[in-house]
């Protein structure tokens, strides 16, 4: 069974005179443990596809099945709950809660899941150690570098024990060293813990590290390659 399975997935924006097909009949299957990059020029539909797969946007046509659940049939509250328990997000601009420390940011999602304190504490410390931020647990985002903030974002995304992590251009705002560091962490988590990562990216470093690269153009998959 696939983790993600889309069939004839389309998204049409009908705001202007001419309807825009952001995603156009995409059939996509993602398996467990994948480390996949979705690439393509600006406007090719990468982010829209990722948003739909993440349950943040609804398709105009087609279906998205995540771990056997059809997202297109879910109501808004069900979707929120589904995202909380099954999908991890890493955003381009880190998007941590500015008033919380690294530890609290990581813990926050587990609080939403109503996990017990003991479990939360243990997992937060373990995750922050995994991403190399053991010494920064009490720092707020404003006291961390961009790379460190993005590593907290990765820890937060993993804290909920999601089925997969969607990362929308995670290295776009990072310097070379931080980007490489982050990619190393995510690749290790994928390899050692079997976490599924799906990136949308322009970054060649991410593309080079991905085992599968899906290329989109005009909302359609034009290339889908597996690389070593």
């Amino acid at each position: 069974m696939y983790v993600i399975e889309t069939k004839d997935l389309s998204k049409v924006y009908d705001n202007g005179a001419v309807p825009v097909h952001a995603v156009n009949g995409v059939d996509l299957n993602i398996e467990d443990d994948e480390f996949t990059a979705i690439v393509g020029p600006s406007g090719s539909g990468k982010t829209t596809l990722l948003n739909m797969v993440g349950g943040l946007d609804s398709p105009t046509a087609g279906t998205i099945v995540v771990n056997g659940k059809d997202l297109s049939r879910m109501r808004e509250n069900e979707l929120i709950n589904f995202r909380l328990n099954h999908i991890g997000f890493v955003f381009q601009s880190y998007n941590l809660i500015p008033v919380l420390t690294a530890k609290e940011n990581t813990e926050f999602i587990m609080l939403l899941q109503k996990r017990p304190k003991k479990e939360r504490d243990a997992r937060v410390l373990s995750l922050l150690k995994e991403v190399g931020l053991s010494d920064k647990i009490n720092k707020k985002p404003s006291e961390l570098s961009g790379g460190q903030q993005q590593r907290v974002a990765v820890a937060r995304a993993l804290a909920a024990k999601p089925d997969f992590v969607l990362a929308d251009e995670p290295t776009a705002n990072l310097d070379s060293k931080s980007a490489t560091n982050l990619l190393n962490i995510m690749a290790r988590l994928n390899k050692e813990e079997g976490t599924t990562f799906i990136f949308s990216t322009h970054d060649q470093r991410v593309i080079d590290r991905a085992r599968r690269v899906i290329t989109l153009e005009d909302g359609k998959i034009v290339k889908d390659i597996t690389q070593n």
Partner: peptide, 13 residues
Amino acid sequence: RELGMLMAIGMNK
């Protein structure tokens, strides 16, 4: 953005 992110990661209304 922050509120949108909170909803995105699973904070209900």
